[in-house]
Design a protein around this nucleic acid. Structure first.
Length: 556
RNA sequence: GGGCCCGUAGCCUAGCAUGGAUAAGGCGACGGCCUCCUAAGCCGUAGAUCGCGGGUUCAAAUCCCGCCGGGUCCGCCA
């Protein structure tokens, strides 16, 4: 709805300004700074120019623009009572669908894609949560979204994990953790003894070659190991409300001919140098180094399969988005540049900076990481401690603690701008006294509680009235009306943290309203008016939480 | 060495795309609020050379240049 208001303001100003100078402001519902720009060429004071503009437009303001005024050269626009009423009524009418848009197109979001050599750790979590939140946002916007986990089933790490299991077997831990044990153990051998290391690396080369050539026994071994790890990873993701539509195995692109196809295409473009190994000639394009796409022994590399994968994405999707750690920036750029040389569309890539521990960066290989499972469990325990005291059946306490924990984790990870690195802090992760997911869930529960009591008391009627709106109510309603405006921005900029902030702000503004305005003790019209605002807030908080993959609790 | 990212109160962060009105929150500190719709809440106080230096501009946290500090990448690994 806010978009309609904005369009009207733009229309008002079309003779004087373009949309660049119109922006949101803490001082007005929308403000225009064009008078400052015009001041120089017209050789007049900004305030005078602003006055002239306002004079010429204020005779017939559109329906949703209530008033215009000039303050220090700014032209300030305020929404009308009619706008406030329509905004609330649209939210109440659309209910579950409020915030949905009508964008079209097939979108692929590839996220997580962690190597299946152990459990997800808290770094992978950042990837999963950004990816899952983006996919929910794109769905809400109307896109046809598919999510994929692209799994490396044929790299060196995977071969080492297979060899680890050969040597040490698998314990009966959760399968991804069991795989990690074997993987860490074999890496320790490699670290300890150079001779052993050389032998193991040769073995790894051999089984990688066999796997690529389709040797049956080795394939079975690889497949079993990867599936074990993926099964554990799937469980972890599920507990965070994250589910991929499908898992794509890198090896598929060897078997289905896409790798050969892409190599042929590179060759036809005259970009391939065959000198033992095969290279893509990038040096002649001004790059520092060429990229190897086929080893001397004939096997493919990660980049080769990834090129093939992206050729497939080109055939099937309008937009394809990858979520990658910042350590993939170089290879991401190489991938994109090579695709461009082949006249294929490169992916849109969301890079996020590292999650590290206070004592340094994480490493699955060295066993230096905090697993997602451990984090989830500890946060759950902490949430349970708080809810233990409440008056609620035991089963419900557990359920609430679970969703508060999941919410807290998801929110903390998604809220941070992707380009910021993150140092993990147990104290912070376990603190629910902050403005975070539980704060939003709590605000939602408060709204639900008021509405529940209204029904119990036999006064469920809602009726918004623009005239009765206080400043705090106007602020709240205006914010509620911005749902799709924010969604639009996230779709363009691929920054889901912006949406997390939007939902948090909705909770903050609702709490301010809650403090200032009693609802149930008011009489008739005022009560119905405020109940309408409570219900609209409830809907926005609920829909917002769902888009963030967080359960909107009705009691907590 | 080169590329990319980050640097905003004691701590964590938003704002930077598209320059504009007293730089906005949280944690922590201090002082308050439950006969009142959920205190996982709220109110108030203290706390900022927006890393440093230059430049562009009527106007810079925001744009440009240089520097400093931290992270990360530069494999016939992924």
């Amino acid at each position: 709805m806010f978009r309609v208001f904005r369009k009207e303001v733009e229309k008002c100003l079309e003779d004087f300004s373009d949309e660049r100078f119109i922006r949101e402001s803490e001082h007005a519902d929308l403000t225009c700074t064009v008078a400052f720009k015009l001041a120089k060429e017209k050789r007049k004071k900004p305030a005078d120019i602003a006055e002239e503009i306002v004079e010429s437009i204020s005779t017939e303001l559109p329906d949703y623009v209530g008033s215009v005024e000039v303050v220090n050269g700014y032209i300030n626009f305020y929404a009308s009572m009619e706008f406030l009423e329509d905004a609330v009524n649209v939210i109440l009418d659309e209910d579950e669908d409020y915030g949905s848009m009508t964008e079209q197109g097939n979108v692929l979001i590839e996220h997580t894609s962690a190597n299946p050599d152990g459990p997800l750790h808290i770094g992978h979590l950042r990837n999963s949560i950004i990816g899952d939140t983006l996919s929910r946002i794109f769905k809400k916007a109307g896109f046809n979204v598919r999510t994929q986990y692209y799994t490396n089933d044929m790299g060196r790490q995977i071969a080492l994990a297979v060899l680890g299991i050969r040597r040490f077997g698998l314990s009966d831990k959760k399968p991804d953790h069991a795989v990690a044990e074997a993987y860490i153990a074999i890496n320790r051998l490699i670290e300890e003894d150079e001779k052993v290391a050389e032998q193991i690396n040769q073995e790894a080369d051999q089984i990688m070659l066999k796997y690529e050539l389709g040797d049956e026994d080795v394939s079975l071994e690889f497949k079993n190991m990867v599936e074990k790890a993926l099964e554990g990873i799937r469980q972890t993701l599920e507990s965070l409300n994250i589910k991929h539509d499908e898992v794509i195995w890198e090896s598929e692109f060897i078997r289905n001919g896409y790798v050969d196809m892409i190599l042929k295409r590179i060759d036809e473009m005259g970009l391939l140098i065959k000198d033992g190994a095969w290279y893509i000639d990038l040096v002649s394009k001004g790059y520092e180094k060429n990229v190897v796409v086929r080893r001397e022994n004939g096997t493919s590399l990660y980049i080769t399969r990834d090129l093939a994968y992206h050729a497939w994405k080109n055939e099937n999707f309008d937009r394809f988005i990858n979520i990658l750690g910042a350590d993939h920036k170089l290879i991401g750029k190489q991938l994109s540049d090579i695709l461009a040389l082949l006249n294929l569309k490169p992916p849109e890539i969301v890079f996020f900076e590292f999650v590290s521990l206070p004592e340094g960066s994480m490493s699955t290989r060295k066993g230096k990481f905090i697993s997602a499972d451990e984090l989830i469990e500890k946060v759950y325990q902490e949430a349970y401690e708080i809810i233990k005291e409440k008056d609620m059946p035991e089963e419900e306490k557990k359920r609430v603690a679970r969703s508060v924990a999941v919410g807290a984790l998801r929110f903390d990870f998604v809220r941070l701008a992707p380009e910021k690195s993150m140092t993990f802090d147990w104290k912070k992760a376990l603190d629910f006294e902050r403005q975070t997911a539980s704060y939003i869930q709590y605000s939602h529960a408060r709204a639900c509680s008021i509405l529940r009591k209204a029904v119990e008391k036999g006064m469920p009627d809602l009726e918004i009235s623009g005239e009765l709106c206080t400043q705090s109510e106007k602020d709240l309603i205006l914010h509620l009306s911005k749902f799709t405006t924010v969604l639009e921005r996230v779709i363009k900029e691929l920054r889901p943290n912006v949406f997390a902030d939007y939902v948090l702000d909705a909770a903050i503004k609702f709490n301010e309203f809650y403090r200032l305005h009693p609802v149930l003790k008011e009489e008739s019209e005022l009560r119905m008016h405020r109940l309408a605002i409570v219900d609209a807030s409830r809907i926005v908080l609920r829909n917002g939480l769902r888009v963030l993959g967080i359960e909107p609790l009705e009691k907590m």
